[in-house]
């Protein structure tokens, strides 16, 4: 079922990670993404693995939930692995039918797969541990300096919060419509690509209609309550940077520097 998609969802819980300021979490996530690309060897990935496990424990998110979130990426990962395996030049390891597979190819493939997995696993903690409202508030606050050069930061964050808010609603709606059409004998699993494409029509038409109606309703409701965005709006929950936020950032920076140093000082295991 579509509901099983956990990527990008919020997982409510009362953990230290959940309580961190969303701005700090966004910054850490961005740094983390850079870090993933700076890692050049297995030691780095092992350290990153430990980091993820610690994060799992601290945030009280079940490992299953995280793994489920990675599942939709499986196809993408396999695709990258295959491309890298066959298209990297170097010393030949073995021949698969007519294509040569090189040692370099195998290692690049493994690296790319690890990189992708860690990239998604780590950054998905941002949405798992931050409620959509906090996330957009954080975004807005971080983007505010760009307002001076004309970036409509408030509108952007408003759009993002609406989009985030409606993802679960749309998933639920899709589920319901799918069930209703299945009840009339619609088949979404069997058939060739053309038949499968055609089978989507009974889902997409009602879904679009309801999405447009919802958008319309929301606009009317916002107008009816005299919504006007902009800098004069106050927030119910103000963001506050506390001691724990600085500690979290410091720990992460120290960790990153350590991981990068290992790479630079050539303490890495690179396979060959």
């Amino acid at each position: 079922m579509l509901k099983d998609i956990t990527l990008g969802q919020y997982y409510p819980s009362e953990s230290i990670i959940h309580k961190l300021d969303s701005r700090i979490k966004i910054i850490i996530t961005l740094l983390y993404m850079v870090l993933v690309f700076l890692i050049k060897g297995f030691v780095g990935f092992a350290l990153l693995g430990i980091f993820i496990v610690v994060l799992l424990k601290l945030s009280k998110i079940p490992a299953k939930f995280l793994l489920k979130g990675l599942k939709p990426l499986l196809f993408f990962i396999i695709f990258t692995v295959i491309i890298n395996m066959f298209l990297t030049g170097g010393t030949r390891a073995f021949t698969f039918i007519i294509w040569d597979v090189t040692y370099e190819g195998i290692f690049t493939a493994i690296f790319m797969a690890l990189r992708l997995i860690f990239l998604v696993a780590g950054s998905s903690f941002l949405t798992y541990t931050t409620s959509p409202i906090m996330l957009t508030d954080g975004m807005e606050s971080l983007l505010k300096p760009f307002g001076k050069i004309g970036l409509p930061y408030h509108e952007l964050s408003m759009m993002m919060s609406i989009a985030l808010r409606f993802i679960p609603t749309l998933i639920e709606e899709t589920d319901k419509i799918m069930m209703a059409q299945k009840a009339r004998g619609a088949d979404f699993e069997d058939g060739n690509i053309i038949q499968k494409g055609k089978a989507l029509i009974p889902i997409l038409v009602p879904l679009f209609i309801s999405a447009f109606r919802r958008a319309d309703d929301l606009a009317t409701a916002m107008e009816a309550r005299c919504y006007s965005g902009g800098s004069n709006r106050t927030k119910l929950k103000e963001l506050h940077l506390g001691k724990k936020d600085f500690i979290a950032l410091t720990i992460f920076v120290v960790f990153s520097v350590f991981v990068v140093l290992i790479g630079i000082l050539n303490l890495e295991i690179r396979g060959f």
Binding site: K176, I177, M179, A180, Q181, S210
Partner: peptide, 11 residues
């Protein structure tokens, strides 16, 4: 099975 608010399924 006729769903609750089945008019949402017309296409």
């Amino acid at each position: 099975l006729v769903f609750q608010y089945p008019e949402a399924q017309l296409f």
